[in-house]
């Protein structure tokens, strides 16, 4: 990356003896959608706060748009739109008034504010509810209003903290689609944080897996799963109708297949661990031997396994 929009160098935040963020280095290029994925309490929000200059790092630097966020937070905040994880609005004001207030705070000329507010409300699909008090807004609507609240400022970078929290599945689809479209149309750099890998997979160009203040891995999801499980064997489990004691030769036959590493025989099932994809060969062999197969299950490693590997193992340690 020539000129990264967000660049973190050895960013560290300590609360007492606890390291919330530990020596984090990361760079995000222009127009990229980056997902920061990690379990609750991994230090995602702390990292974001440091990028906005809202929290002082214990060590390291956070540069956003080439500006040091700790030294010059106001200049950074002019370029970055931030949506906190439970975004709130002044309930006694209408959505439009809320937007106008933000517009004024950002020094947008009065004549332009109304026009921009209308435009952004249309963009996020809330033009019908513009004059409704935000107190009557649903969670999903508030989230979209939060997006409008960022867009009215025409930022260069959007930082969304847990934007999918508490919205229903179809709402999430819609919201993430909207973010992606906006990012592509306006060349916005987007940083999202979430603990939902599935949501992030739909939208992010790149993700970083963040656990206990450390960035364990970064890249797009397929390359991450490749890196993680590329060397890992596949497990094919075949269930059969009659007890396998009738075919004593099956184990040796299977072991002769190329790529097979281990075979475990049970009463009515057989488990084959293999280094490459040889499921058809296993099935063909067993059919030729006259074994009645009732089911074949092939276990590959996907998102859930990435998740389990990083997050759930971690919980056990804690």
């Amino acid at each position: 990356m020539e000129h990264p929009v967000i660049e973190l160098e050895g960013l560290t935040k300590r609360y007492g003896r606890v390291k919330a963020v530990d020596d984090l280095s990361l760079s995000i290029g222009k127009g990229e959608i980056f997902g920061l994925i990690g379990p609750n309490g991994a230090g995602k929000t702390t990292t974001i706060l440091m990028m906005l200059g809202l929290s002082e790092p214990t060590g390291g630097r956070a540069m956003v748009c080439g500006i040091d966020a700790t030294r010059n937070p106001i200049a950074v905040k002019r370029k970055v739109g931030y949506m906190p994880d439970s975004v709130g609005f002044y309930d006694n004001m209408t959505a439009l008034e809320n937007l106008q207030f933000i517009g004024r705070l950002n020094g947008i000329p009065e004549q332009e504010i109304i026009e921009r507010a209308h435009r952004t409300m249309q963009l996020v699909g809330l033009s019908d509810a513009m004059h409704k008090k935000t107190g009557a807004y649903s969670r999903g609507m508030k989230q979209r209003l939060g997006l409008a609240d960022i867009l009215i400022r025409e930022p260069e970078v959007m930082i969304l903290d847990e934007p999918t929290l508490g919205i229903d599945p179809s709402g999430i689809q819609e919201f993430l689609g909207l973010v992606r479209r906006l990012s592509r149309q306006q060349g916005l750099t987007v940083l999202l944080s979430s603990h939902h890998l599935h949501h992030m997979q739909q939208i992010c160009d790149r993700v970083g897996i963040f656990v206990e203040g450390k960035l364990l891995m970064e890249g797009d999801i397929s390359s991450i799963s490749g890196k993680l499980f590329g060397q890992e064997p596949l497990l094919v489990t075949v269930t059969v109708q009659e007890p396998l004691s009738g075919w004593p030769s099956v184990e040796t036959a299977l072991r002769e297949l190329t790529g097979v590493r281990d075979v475990t025989i049970g009463e009515n099932s057989i488990g084959v661990t293999c280094g490459s994809e040889i499921t058809p060969a296993i099935v063909r062999l067993m059919v030729e031997m006259g074994i009645g197969i009732t089911g074949v299950h092939r276990k590959a490693y996907g998102l859930d396994d990435i998740y389990a590997r990083f997050f759930e193992n971690h919980k056990k340690q804690v």
């Binding site: 905040k77 906190p84 020094g107 939060g146």
Partner: peptide
Amino acid sequence: NGTLARLIAQP
């Protein structure tokens, strides 16, 4: 209300 976090993220 969650408005403070939003407010101090403004310039």
